[in-house]
Amino acid sequence: MTQPITADTAAPIPVADVESAINVWRALSSAPAGVDDGIVLCREARVLADLYGKMIFDRLHSVPASTLSAEQLAALNGARL
């Protein structure tokens, strides 16, 4: 396993890594009972989806790890199985 991503990580986080992490969380989590429309995201995927949306809107190819919240860092690290 690679080193965890921290706020001190020198390499920027590419948008593709954020997208991949969202997909990992979507695959790992199941929808709440009675919901199977594919719209509900688990908490980890939601915080990453917010980041992803901002990156797309701002046309960013990557972001410095130092700009991510603790929750976003945890979600990225949790998706790195």
Rank of each mutant, 00 (worst) to 15 (best):
G53T: 11
G34V: 11
L68K: 07
A45W: 05
Y52V: 00
V63W: 00
T9E: 10
G78K: 06
V63P: 00
R80S: 06
P14T: 11
A45Q: 06
L48C: 09
I5R: 12
Q72V: 01
L41H: 14
G38E: 10
L28K: 12
A21F: 05
A11F: 06
R46H: 11
D17N: 11
M55W: 08
R59E: 14
L68D: 03
V35E: 14
T6G: 10
G34W: 14
A7D: 06
V15R: 14
S62A: 15
T6K: 01
A16V: 11
T9Y: 04
V63D: 05
P14Q: 01
V63E: 09
A31N: 10
F57V: 12
A10T: 14
R46S: 10
M55Q: 03
E19T: 05
T9N: 04
G38P: 05
S66F: 00
D50N: 15
L81F: 03
T67R: 06
S29A: 15
A10S: 11
W25Y: 02
R43N: 10
A74C: 01
V35S: 06
A10C: 01
N23E: 13
E71L: 09
A75L: 08
P64T: 09
H61V: 11
I5A: 05
R26T: 01
A16E: 14
L68C: 09
I39R: 15
L73S: 04
V15T: 09
G78F: 07
S20D: 09
D58K: 10
P4W: 06
G38M: 12
M1Y: 10
D58Q: 13
R46A: 10
G34A: 06
S20N: 11
V40L: 08
H61C: 04
D37K: 01
G34E: 12
A33D: 15
P32M: 07
S30Q: 13
F57Q: 13
I13V: 15
G34F: 12
P12M: 08
P64L: 05
L68F: 02
A79H: 07
S62T: 08
A79D: 00
I56C: 09
N23S: 07
V35C: 10
P14E: 06
V35D: 09
I5F: 14
A65E: 04
L81W: 03
M1F: 07
R59S: 15
S29H: 10
D8M: 12
R46P: 00
N23Q: 15
I39E: 05
L76K: 03
A31V: 01
V24H: 12
S62Q: 13
L41I: 02
P4F: 04
S62Y: 03
A10E: 15
L68E: 04
D36L: 03
A79I: 02
P14F: 05
P32C: 09
V18A: 08
A70C: 00
P14M: 06
V18M: 04
V40P: 00
S29M: 07
D58L: 14
A11M: 10
G38H: 12
G38F: 11
M1I: 02
S62D: 14
N77A: 06
V24M: 12
W25R: 09
Y52Q: 14
D36K: 05
E71P: 00
V15P: 00
A7S: 14
Q3C: 02
P12L: 03
G38Q: 10
N77E: 01
